[in-house]
Computed example of a mutant assay.
Amino acid sequence: MKRIATGAALLVAALFPLFPLYWMVISSLKSPEELSRIPPSWWPETLTFDAYSTVFDVVPFGRAFGNSLLIAGLGTLSVLVTSVAAGYAFAKYRFPGRDTLFWALVATMFLPAVVTLVPLYWMISSLGLSDSYLGVLLPWLANPFGIFLMRQFCADVPDELIDAARVDGAGEARILVRIVLPLLRPAVVTLTVFAFVFYWNSFLWPLSVLQSDTKFPVVLSLSQLLSYASSVRYQSVVLAGALVASLPTVVVFLLAQRVFIQTIARAGER
């Protein structure tokens, strides 16, 4: 009986995070009349896809998705490369000031993004990179959390394995790519999910740097739906746009969820 009660409690707790997604889906499928009804219905009486038709007419999703994929793809790749290389160096190399530099790097994780917004904007402007994809990517090509995560996993790689490879004549780059990197697969997958979601959902920084509508990622392109947000009758259009924009991040998580959960469980055992 106790196990049943515990399982029921865990099921209810797990459903809470899914409720906003459920409400977004069903609301996007309601008619304007049903959406403005009080009390609200828990399931659409008549399914309608008019909101999605309106969204695809208003928002240039093809171009916006291409921009987001370019920014998120290049940003994620850069974070993976820099995090694995720096994490390996911090974990396996001894040099003066290593620990001080590492913890100073970790301390930057606690800086609110808004604090660095103005200095970063002036830096990008002075380099002439305003309204460019490089301007959006440059400040985030390396990530302190990614370096911290990789350093923790690299520390678990046996030193004897690396020393044996060096004795066999393997260079440091080959050791990192052929020996260490395969052992970091769970951490790499986890960091890929975090980095992709971060870049895909990034709003404030691209809004500050980009001025051309043709370069807007999908989260900025959704601003074209603001005129529909002023009326409850047309909230289904806004919700449909938000759902379409969030689908890639959901797909990425679903593809990586098995390894992702294993990594979180392993990290909890440390």
Rank of each mutant, 00 (worst) to 15 (best):
S130M: 15
Y93N: 08
R270E: 03
V238M: 10
T82D: 02
G135D: 01
R233A: 15
A165G: 14
T214P: 01
R266D: 03
A173I: 15
D156C: 06
Y88T: 05
L161S: 06
S230K: 09
P206T: 08
S221M: 09
A195V: 08
F203P: 06
S202E: 12
A86H: 06
S212N: 14
T214V: 11
V250F: 13
Y52G: 05
T190N: 04
F16C: 11
R174N: 02
L70D: 01
G97Y: 06
F148P: 02
T100E: 11
F148S: 04
P44R: 05
L137V: 13
P112M: 11
Y52S: 04
E160S: 15
A85C: 12
L105G: 14
K92V: 09
V25W: 02
L176P: 00
G73T: 02
A240Y: 04
G7Q: 07
W200Q: 01
V180I: 15
S231R: 12
P182L: 06
F90T: 00
A165M: 05
Q262N: 12
A5S: 11
W23N: 11
R3S: 07
S223W: 01
R151V: 08
A187D: 00
Q235M: 13
L127F: 15
A155M: 12
L18V: 11
Q257H: 13
V259T: 13
A187L: 03
F216I: 00
M109D: 11
F49C: 05
G66A: 13
T6C: 08
F95Q: 07
W103P: 08
P144H: 03
S236I: 03
Y133T: 04
V219I: 15
P186F: 03
A51N: 15
M123S: 10
A91V: 08
A5N: 06
V167D: 02
L77M: 12
L191P: 04
I71L: 15
A64G: 03
R3T: 06
A195E: 01
A245T: 10
V12R: 04
L80E: 04
S78W: 00
L129M: 14
L101V: 15
R37W: 07
T263M: 12
F90D: 00
W200R: 02
L181Y: 06
F260S: 00
D163Y: 10
L129P: 09
V232L: 12
Y22P: 06
W103Q: 03
L120A: 12
T100F: 12
T116R: 03
L161W: 07
S221H: 02
A13F: 12
V193F: 09
V115I: 15
I147Q: 01
V59E: 03
A5T: 12
C154T: 10
W42N: 01
R185H: 07
M123V: 14
A107V: 03
V59L: 09
G169L: 07
E34L: 10
